[in-house]
Amino acid sequence: MVQTETPAPTERGRRSYGRYTAGRLAQYAAVLFIALTLNFALPRALPGGPLKLFGSPEALAQLTAEERAQIANQYGFGQPLHEQFFTYLGNVFSLDLGMSLSQRRPVMEVLGEALPWTLLLVGTSIVITALLGVTLGVIGALRRRKGKGSGLLGGAIVFDSLPQFWLGMLLIVLFSVQLRMLPTFGAVGPDGVVTIGAVAQHLVLPVTTLTLTGFGYLFLYTRSSLLTVLTSEPVQHAHARGVPYRQIVRRHALRPALLPVHTIIMMEIGFLAAGSIVVETVFAYPGLGRLTFNAISARDYPLMQGAFLVLTVMVVVMNAVADATYPLLDPRARAGGAR
């Protein structure tokens, strides 16, 4: 069997790669700046404003224009927009995200409390979803003409189309209300004591909901990608050379087929910090998704900006990681990157 070796990079190639990397970094910086600007602008484009955090509508109605202006100035949303923007940019770069208007605590503190729960919930579900989706996708592609492959395809499409809210409620009714096996809401026990058992108990239903509604996408992508590779010319050549089927799959098909899947998984990890608004709301899970939703509902500008910032940074970083690791998996990308 012919082995293809990757050529050693030349001095010229290294310089080109350096320019390529610098160009990429500049692109990421530009993306980050645009995203930061949007993070500032979008909350303020929403109807209503944070004034509603300062009393019931009936109470706010009694305020004079001067009293309204005084509140807005005191809590930092009364200044002209450009001043607010520059203050915001300055705060971002000094990692001071200000005070949450709804929680009256530093935004960093609020995000810091929610982030671990989201990483646990969404991280666990991404790992299981990836394993399940990719594994079943490979099986679905290899057994595409058999009953098992069709069954997997049908099952994946069904699960992929289930609304998270509906499935979550169904699981609560079944496992919490009927079987009394698992808790209905929250992340820890009723006394707030954090134990591994309680955390795992509270994780099961949300993770199952995310996994069941999420693996179909990866399944379909993996299956489609592998099917494309299996019918490609190099694989046909390998067949013609008499390479055993299992070896063809392992050496010639899986690696190229999983490259786009790798990108998809990296992007999913990027969005990990967004949490899952629906699942965290249904299960009253104290993660970033629910926090972001609450911040949007309350028009809590500093908290919204903070949550969006974490999401932006994660997405940009994971895209960079995907870009950086892609050449390691695909020699063609290494050569392409040098050119």
């Binding site: 609560i172 919490s176 209300v177 808790p183 209905t184 929250g186 009253a284």
Partner: peptide, 19 residues
């Protein structure tokens, strides 16, 4: 004890389970 459960259906499920 006061617990925060945003979703109405989850609140009522928790009431049925006794949580």
């Amino acid at each position: 004890k006061v617990v925060v459960i945003p979703e109405e259906a989850t609140q009522f499920a928790a009431l049925r389970t006794g949580e």
